[in-house]
Amino acid sequence: MSHSPAANSPEVFDEVDPHGQHHYGQHESHVIVGPFMLRSVLAVLLLFTVLTVGFAQAEIAIQNWFGYELPWWVNVVGAMSIATIKSILVMAIFMQLRYDNPINTVAMLFCFFALGLFLLFTGLDLFTRGTIYDFKAGQVVKGGTGQGVATANGVPIADAARDRFKQLIATPEVKEHLIVTNAVRAAAEDAAVHGQPAAAAALNAMADRMMDLHAVKVHTPEAGQQNRTAAEISRMADAMRSAGNAAGADTLAAAAKSIKGLNLAEAGASYSVEAEFARLAAFAHGGEHHHAPIVSTANESRARSGLSGALTTESGRGTHAPAAGH
């Protein structure tokens, strides 16, 4: 089935010579890019994907282990350069720009140029919005900085979301859920101390599930959590026993018993919404920051970022919002 385009289409269009009478400057429309080339390009593309992820991870590792924060542009320039190389490969080989009529490349270049102008001039305005020139300093009152704080009805949306959540964890059902969760966590630590790694892992996994934001916020816990959890741990103990780990099963059974005997009212007296919130936030960040330095507590980091309800201005355009400086 070999196809010879030259035989089938003697007239390949040419700008200077629309009828192909002279056959000069003739280009090949039907280029066939072979499997070897395509596979090589795919391999290189996947390699670059690994590279760009590794690059970002390496930066975090440097930050975590050596405490050295690379300048912000290293990350951006690195990732964008790799993305550019990848996109050039895709366009040149997969999309066959390399073999194509150059006008298609020109069209694409014009498009990127226009995009560049768009970003450049929009940035020119947005990033110099707050600038005041010295020679006018006496006449001009500084206005907005181009930086706003997300608010709804005067309360920053992020603050509102946090307050709603704190109200949620103060409700009796969630309170019970979290007290039980902490008891499970304590039992897990206990098991670890007493040399029962299997039981500790099972209890920790259970505590993780219970501390997940889905379990707390999405599937709002119902009352009776204490008994249900104790029953589940008992089932886990039975399973472990039938698997042949009698010591582990005993630990679990003891944990179930202690949770069942937990005095909720007593534990609730020392329950602190703020501490619980901090614990959950730390857990969420630990669980989700797959490449982030673990933030100690949400409250601390909030204090660090200078965020609080008092910082919002009436117009919603906070002049005290975190500075954009690099």
């Binding site: 001039f121 929009t122 305005d125 947005l126 907005g144 181009g146 930086q147 706003g148 704080v149 997300a150 608010t151 709804a152 949306i157 117009s315 919603g316 355009r317």
Partner: peptide
């Protein structure tokens, strides 16, 4: 929307 951190002049751009 400036109330949500955005910029109405960005729309004009």
């Amino acid at each position: 929307d400036p109330a949500l951190g955005g910029d109405p002049v960005l729309y004009q751009h």
